[in-house]
Structures are given as C-alpha cells and as structure tokens.
Amino acid sequence: MITLPTEAVTLQRFAGAQDVFFEVFEGFTLLGHEAQARPHRHAYHEVLWIESGLGQHSVDGVRVELSPQTLSVITAGQTHEFHHVQEVNGALLCLEPELWRAAPILSHAPADWAIWRSIWQVLGSEYARSTQHLPHALRESLALALRLLEREQIPAAPDRAASRLARFQALLEHHFRTEHEVAFYAAQLHCTSDQLSREVRVSLGHSAKNAIQQRLMLEAQRLLRLSSLPVGQVAERLGYRDVFSFSRAFRSGVGVSPQGFRRPPSVGTS
C-alpha cells in the first residue's frame, strides 16, 4: 500500500525536464499523517485525484468536500490542510511551477472520469519505470493530463479586456509585495488607472485597487498562519511603511487584527 507523503515530497529530476513526482495512494487517513492536518504549503503544484473515500480539505481557508471522482489543483504557495479524511483512494501528481502555469481548482467533477482514471494509471506505470530520463510515454501522458486540466479551467473570452486582465493578474502576482498602487500596473499595461479599474470591475466585480488589497491580504494570512514572523516583519515583507498601516489594512480587509487572526504556526513552506 502506498500512502500520501506526510509533508513534502522529493520531486524526481529528469534530464532535460522539470521535476515531477507521482504516487498512487490507497486507504489514506490522517492517522500517522498529522502534518497533513495542519496548515502547510509547498513550492510546487499538486494535482489530487480522488477515486473514492470521503473527507474535506481547505485551500487558503476555503473548506470543500473531497468527494469520489473529483480532482483538485493546489498551486505553489497556497495554504492547504486536510480534515476528517477517511479511507481515501486516488493519486497525487506534483509539478514544478515552470512546467505548468496552473490555476487553482478546489474540487471539480470531470464529465468523463474514466479518462482521468486511465491517465493516472498510465502515469503511475510509466513513472515507476522511469530513471534519469523522462520517457516518451510519461511525457505524453503528462502533456495530455495538463491539456485536459486546462480545459477544466474555463478560460476568459479572448478579447482585449480579457487579455489586459490576464496581464494585470500576472503583473500583480509578481509585484504585489512592492507595488500597491493602481497607477503602476496601468503604466505597465499602457492604459489609464480608471480604464484598468473599469475593466477589472467588469470582469471580477471589484476595482483594481481591491484586487491589489485582496492579494496582499491573502499573502498576509498565509504568512501569519504558516510562520512565526512578528507582525512587523510580515508588514515589512509586504511593503507596508509601518506595522500600523498594515494592521489597519488587515483589519479592514479580513475583519480582525493580525494578532487576532494568527494561531500557532505549524509546517512552513517546503
């Protein structure tokens, strides 16, 4: 019987390819795997197939059911923890972020589960036979799995506003710790701040400024939950000029103070 790794996995390095890890698990429970029941995060993407069994997991504080014949994508850096997992069977694929630009999926039931079962069975077979070179069959299976995963993630309409939104989100992910003003992103995208805010509001339901604040608050919650950094250092890492400005923004965005939100740290980034 193969079980889920207790904390981090070691991704296998293949010559001329990014690192990959794959494992089939049977009868997984949290007994003996307490690290999975505490908030943790990894530096790689995880694709989790659930064939059967019951349980729950939380991704960045959002709790969802782990239902049979569903898949989840936990992207690098997201906070993850399991709850009440009972006799879960399935498979786990871990990938370096450079291999695939993943988008999170909390829990999704694909229309044709038989295809996914076949894919992870082939992945398991080919991965077990692999050594230092990524064999053609494994490479093709990975490529097929990633193409199907991208189809499961509904793409935005391919118009100019959608393209600018995608570029804004990519810029935000790269610069949110140091650039808190809409004007910076608008300049990078060759539009006005008002134009960017209108397009973001139409697509996301809130302004570009709110998008920046939400990304900052998400990272703040991750740092407060997963590290023992003092609040002042969290504020500094996120580009706030002082702890008071950070605390005010955190209370406004999250509804409690940073100290009130924090609980004892557990597993850090691996």
Results as ranks from 00 to 15, higher is better:
2 I>R: 11
7 E>H: 11
13 R>T: 10
21 F>G: 08
21 F>R: 05
24 V>E: 13
25 F>G: 06
26 E>Q: 13
31 L>C: 06
32 G>Y: 12
33 H>W: 09
37 A>D: 12
39 P>S: 10
45 H>Q: 07
46 E>H: 08
49 W>G: 04
49 W>T: 05
54 L>N: 13
54 L>Y: 13
55 G>N: 04
55 G>A: 03
56 Q>F: 12
58 S>M: 02
60 D>F: 02
62 V>W: 01
62 V>I: 14
63 R>A: 11
66 L>N: 11
67 S>R: 15
70 T>D: 09
76 A>T: 07
78 Q>W: 01
81 E>R: 12
81 E>K: 09
82 F>T: 02
83 H>P: 00
85 V>P: 00
85 V>L: 13
92 L>N: 08
92 L>T: 08
92 L>S: 08
99 L>M: 15
100 W>S: 02
106 L>S: 04
114 A>I: 07
117 R>S: 11
119 I>W: 04
120 W>L: 03
120 W>D: 09
123 L>T: 06
125 S>T: 10
127 Y>H: 05
128 A>V: 10
130 S>D: 10
132 Q>Y: 08
132 Q>G: 09
135 P>A: 06
135 P>Y: 03
138 L>Y: 07
140 E>W: 03
145 A>M: 11
146 L>M: 09
147 R>C: 08
149 L>N: 01
152 E>Q: 15
156 A>M: 14
164 R>Y: 02
164 R>V: 07
165 L>Q: 02
165 L>P: 00
166 A>K: 04
166 A>M: 06
167 R>D: 07
168 F>A: 00
170 A>L: 06
173 E>S: 01
174 H>D: 12
178 T>S: 15
179 E>N: 06
181 E>Q: 13
184 F>S: 10
187 A>Q: 12
188 Q>E: 15
190 H>D: 15
191 C>M: 13
198 R>E: 15
198 R>A: 11
199 E>K: 00
204 L>W: 06
204 L>K: 15
205 G>L: 05
209 K>Y: 12
212 I>F: 05
213 Q>L: 13
214 Q>C: 03
216 L>E: 08
218 L>S: 11
218 L>V: 10
218 L>D: 06
219 E>H: 07
229 L>S: 01
231 V>I: 15
232 G>T: 15
232 G>E: 13
234 V>D: 09
234 V>Y: 10
236 E>N: 11
237 R>I: 06
238 L>R: 10
246 F>L: 07
247 S>K: 04
249 A>E: 03
250 F>H: 01
251 R>C: 09
252 S>M: 12
254 V>T: 07
255 G>K: 03
255 G>S: 07
256 V>G: 05
259 Q>A: 14
261 F>P: 02
262 R>Q: 02
263 R>A: 14
265 P>Y: 11
265 P>E: 08
267 V>I: 14
268 G>E: 13
269 T>R: 09
